[in-house]
Design a protein around this nucleic acid. Structure first.
Length: 504
RNA sequence: GCUCCCAUCGUCUAGAGGCCCAGGACACAGCCCUCUCAAGGCUGGUACGAGGGUUCGAAUCCCUCUGGGAGCGCCA
């Protein structure tokens, strides 16, 4: 797997020798005192499994964890849950790391890899075995399948019936798994910041496998060990984990650990309100970079999905980290609205100076095989930022700056590059030539307006033919800015060709 | 089937008993501005799933129903 460090617990001794943490209450975790002036620092983690791409849903979870840590001056930890050796891939790890880096969701600790912590897991498993919290189970897969099928047929909840709980002798030739012995009675209360207390009856919880017969520990177990070892104070994750939580709490208790506070976030649905799929937004978050979205805009949009701050829609990252809090998080699932994401992106682009957008526009142009050498991309970005929803749209809208039109858009040409427009075109040419070296937006505007006045027509009668002449179509930024960016030489060259076209 | 979660405009949401015959945003329509396209401004339509309670008063509290979702793996 990956090459990151293994997390080494401050005290790698036995579980019971670990100093016990002071209790963390539900909503007043933030500053409990143990000796008068000790303050608990918030520690959150994002724990993706590298079995697929990092998509929008995962990013939202990561964002909330990151924001919460930042907001409270805490620590954000990245942990790669790669215990599924069959499906975990290095490519997926790379994609997660790249995505987090692009978005700027930097981790203070990690990435840690669970596959590097096997010694620690085994240590806990042995302790469970000794203390009776764990036991060997020799049931075969077939046997378990059969058991489940029978329960389903009887309309019971499929669960392990504990048939190996009291077995004292091994079954020859069978490598056992280790199961965690859940309490038989009582209840487990999950203190959830967004949902409030959620109560589970222990009876509902069966004995889950914590060590596979191939020696690999399993998810729920590793999570419990890691969250404790890494001192996680707030587990922020998708609400599809709610049902796992009581088991994790039970294992935490068996370790003598104090469970963290939980915050289960609602799911993100596709635009049609159904589960996110590859057709929707379940593509790698890096696709959004290719599509020309700004990290800040994507984060802004995602932040507003399931969280709100009054009526405010637009947030800078700085505002987000200052205002975000878990108590304003919604409980219900929300659907992706790509139109709003695009709008948000445009709003962010509009706030940025062209010089900041220029390098990003350059990337988009490069991927289109366009060489913008010698052209002022910052000026183009300034001219186009309020007429593009994404950087990709900006790149498309700027194409005519880099190449003379090879043909004119038929409708626009028919209307604006005809005999009627010829006088205006010729007069405009003369007026522009007269500008000489002062080919600036202000001077161009002045000249064109003066010309329109002399001709006794509206500016549109002059600007629109010019627009079609230099851009090939009927849409472009304001004509003064457009001409200035193109430069006198290019403008006159394109104008001459258009005049020829209009006269023929 | 069992357990758990959820429920305000098409979508994202405000709303924590009277300020709400429900506000903002995206999208949509119209108008204004205007050299095109945008951006911006103004206007408009559309929502508290249903039924019972509690209360002088409920989108807000309680119950039931309905609808949606998640989990029930030697996946995470």
């Amino acid at each position: 797997m990956g090459a990151g460090p293994a997390f080494n617990p401050p005290e790698a001794g036995t579980i019971r020798s670990r100093p016990s943490r002071p209790p963390v209450g539900l909503l007043e975790f933030r500053a409990f005192q143990s000796n008068g002036n000790t303050r608990v620092t918030v520690r959150t983690r994002f724990a993706p499994s590298p079995t697929g791409m990092l998509h929008i849903g995962g990013v939202r979870t990561a964002l909330f964890s990151w924001l919460y840590a930042r907001r409270h001056g805490g620590t954000f930890i990245l942990r790669i849950e790669d215990t599924d050796r069959e499906r975990s891939t290095d490519a997926a790890i790379e994609a997660i790391l790249d995505g987090m880096k692009w978005l700027g969701l930097d981790a203070d600790e990690g990435p840690f890899y669970q596959t590097k912590r096997y010694d620690r897991y085994r240590e806990v498993i042995n302790q469970f075995l000794e203390s009776g919290h764990g036991y060997h189970c020799y049931c075969s897969k077939e046997e378990l399948d059969e058991m489940r099928a029978g329960q389903m047929a009887r309309k019971e909840k499929p669960r392990y019936d504990g048939r190996c709980r009291h077995r004292t002798t091994p079954v020859p030739g069978v490598t056992p798994v280790v199961r965690f012995r859940n309490p038989d009675e009582g209840q487990v209360v999950v203190n959830d910041i967004v949902h409030g207390p959620i109560v589970f009856q222990s009876q509902e919880l069966d004995d889950l496998i914590i060590l596979r017969s191939d020696g690999n520990p399993t998810y729920n177990f590793c999570v419990a060990v890691d969250d404790w070892d890494m001192g996680i104070t707030h587990v922020i994750r998708g609400d599809d984990h709610i049902n796992n939580t009581p088991r994790q709490i039970n294992m935490l208790r068996a370790m003598g650990a104090t469970p963290p506070v939980y915050a289960h976030l609602p799911m993100i649905l596709g635009p049609d309100g159904t589960k996110l799929s590859k057709r929707h937004g379940a593509v790698s978050v890096l696709e959004y970079r290719n599509d020309g979205y700004l990290p800040a805009a994507l984060l802004n949009y995602l932040g507003r999905l399931g969280w709100s701050h009054g009526d405010q829609e637009l947030f800078s990252l700085e505002e987000l980290t200052r205002l975000f809090d878990l108590d304003a998080v919604n409980k219900s699932a929300s659907a992706l609205n790509l139109d709003k994401l695009a709008w948000t992106n445009q709003q962010h682009m509009m706030k940025l100076p062209g010089s900041a957008l220029a390098p990003l526009l350059a990337e988009q142009l490069a991927s289109r095989g366009i060489d913008p050498a010698g052209i002022d991309l910052a000026a183009i970005a300034d001219a186009l930022k309020e007429r593009s929803r994404t950087l990709a749209e900006m790149a498309e809208g700027s194409r005519f700056f880099f190449a003379d039109p090879t043909e004119y858009e038929p409708k626009a040409a028919a209307k604006n590059l005809n005999a009627d427009a010829l006088p205006a075109l010729l007069a405009a040419r003369a007026a522009l030539v007269a500008l000489g070296a002062e080919f600036t937006p202000a001077r161009i505007d002045e000249a064109l307006k003066g010309l329109a006045a002399t001709l006794g027509v509206g500016l549109g009668k002059v600007a629109q033919p010019l627009r079609v002449a230099v851009s090939g179509g009927g849409v472009s930024p304001p004509i003064d800015a457009t001409l200035a960016i193109l430069g006198a030489g290019t403008v006159l060259r394109r104008l001459d060709r258009a005049i020829q076209h209009a006269g023929s």
